[in-house]
């Protein structure tokens, strides 16, 4: 079984030798490559008469990207969790009299937010400026992966929130307090989901 690297090399050699794309496709189909594999492999080379064949840009992986995006999404995750905790505890205090024990959680959550929120904002705005200046950064595979992971986590949280709400409804626990708390989770997770969903759509449109 030939690897994709060999497929790519074969196509380059075939194009250099002056074969047409239709001939190459036929040859590869005979060899057992699937249609999508052939299209992907051919797309890696620009359709120009220029020889040798011109490669199209590919996704990149860099340690710098990993550092920046892992940091951004880590800060986002921790910050979002603590934002939800602080707001939920505040809601609890609205409804319950004896809440001294949760004061520590508010203090800790606020401490996290004071560190995480400005850092996240700075990282995100800085990255946006860099993307606007250098579109090559759009091809960062790590950026793409972490964006989709953020989407996945946000979607999972939203679904869990929905399930919890329906469960509370069925067990008769759907109080105003519960609805407010579920609403907070929905608002934070939904906001994050929309934010990254829009970013991806905007990128695909470009």
């Amino acid at each position: 079984m030939a690897s994709r690297d060999e497929l790519s090399l074969f196509i380059r050699d075939a194009l250099t030798a002056g074969n047409s794309r239709a001939d190459i496709t036929a040859a590869l189909t005979d060899a057992g490559w699937s249609k999508t594999e052939i299209i992907d492999a051919l797309d890696a080379w620009a359709e120009t008469a220029f020889t040798p064949p011109v490669p199209r840009p590919v996704q990149t992986v860099s340690a710098r990207d990993f550092f920046i995006y892992a940091l951004t999404f880590g800060v986002l995750l921790v910050g979002a969790i603590n934002l939800v905790i602080v707001l939920q505890v505040l809601v609890d205090l609205l409804f319950e009299e004896d809440g001294y024990a949760v004061f520590g959680r508010i203090r800790f959550g606020v401490s996290v937010l004071i560190v995480a929120a400005p850092l996240y904002l700075w990282l995100t705005l800085r990255e946006r400026r860099r993307l606007a200046r250098d579109p090559a950064l759009h091809r960062s595979a790590i950026r793409k992966w972490l964006t989709y992971i953020a989407l996945l986590l946000a979607a999972g949280t939203l679904l869990g929130d929905l399930v919890a709400t329906i469960y509370a409804l069925l067990t008769g626990d759907l109080t105003a307090q519960f609805m407010l708390k579920a609403g907070i989770v929905g608002l934070v997770a939904g906001g994050i989901f929309l934010f990254y969903y829009n970013a991806i759509r905007q990128e695909d449109a470009e």
Binding site: L83, L90, R107, I114, A117, G191, L194, F195, N198
Partner: peptide
């Protein structure tokens, strides 16, 4: 809009949190 909303939400959480504790 989402980014501004996010800033407002965090500001409310920090402000209300500190006010309560």
């Amino acid at each position: 809009v989402l980014l501004i909303g996010f800033c407002l939400m965090v500001a409310v959480a920090i402000g209300a949190g500190l006010w309560v504790v």
